[in-house]
Design a protein around this nucleic acid. Structure first.
Lengths: 157, 157
DNA sequence: GGAACGGAGTTGAGAGTTCAACTATTCCTG
DNA sequence: CAGGAATAGTTGAACTCTCAACTCCGTTCC
């Protein structure tokens, strides 16, 4: 473990700005969905991914990775969503270890009801405050970060 | 409530990219601090702000806003940190409603021990994957978002 | 000066997340 | 094909966070 390369003043400001914006932003997204639709953002994401899958059905592990959830988080979440009648779990025919999660009609309706308020919030807090150039920059920045994060991990090179 | 202005394909990609990068990034930051230093990122932030304050002491409400915590979250967090011996709460002399939170020597030591691993992670996942131009762009983007988020709120204009 | 209002902070219940341990099945390899 | 390793998913406990009361103190305004 070599000596730490501390952040210089510029980096410090960038980091704190990014941290503040992201925390505040995601807190707002969370609150909007909770108040407006009675579900957490993680559940919303899970339902979105299911709604886009063929037959509105996915294997649990697929669903975990596309919705950026850990397996455990997904298990708990799907259990709750199943109680609520939004999702149905069935054993996977080809792999007896597996489970398929399917979005029910009630779940889809819930998602459709939640979407407008959510999109409004994203638009008003993100796209409405950025120029088109900034939007493209943000996308490239995020892609670069995501690429790094998708590596197994490998601490330092 | 007017008709929803849905995201077009480009906006969709930007949004999902930002979402994925941020979720993965903050999950990693959280995990690194938890494993490397045994404390959540929220606690780390609280300790950082205290460490920078005169006398390493701040009013609870000041601390809540600078550390991006709700009052309730901060109360719970400081209670735990006090049990751990990292923080000390004392009544505020000038306002009997208030409380001052002070970072103890043990808390400061803990923070110093946690910092290198945390900074390494931030550098390796954020700054090492961005050009200097991208870093500046990210700062401006974040500042714009934070400015919007700091408004009382006001849904649509 | 006493009642109403607002600010500071805490508390407890409820919900989501994480972590580690666990079961069950499938894959791999000698 | 037997046995170990890896994969899929679940579970329960511990922890953090949120929300809605609630207390206590200060401020204001008749």
């Amino acid at each position: 473990m070599a000596d730490t390369r501390w952040l210089d003043a510029d980096e410090q400001k960038t980091w704190r700005s990014y941290l503040a914006a992201s925390r505040l932003f995601f807190d707002r997204i969370e609150r909007q969905l909770q108040h407006g639709a009675g579900l957490p953002h993680a559940y919303y994401e899970i339902m979105v991914r299911l709604s886009e899958a063929p037959g509105r059905t996915l294997r649990m592990s697929e669903l975990a990775s596309t919705s950026l959830s850990s397996r455990s988080r997904l298990s708990h979440a799907v259990a709750r969503m199943e109680e609520a009648g939004w999702v149905l779990r069935t054993p996977c025919p080809t792999d007896k270890r597996g489970q398929n999660a399917a979005l029910t009609a009630a779940g889809f309706a819930r998602l459709e009801a939640a979407a407008p308020g959510h999109v409004d919030e994203v638009r008003s807090l993100l796209f409405d405050v950025l120029t088109v150039e900034q939007q493209h920059a943000l996308r490239e920045i995020s892609d670069a970060m995501a690429a790094r994060l998708a590596d197994g991990h490998l601490g330092r090179p």
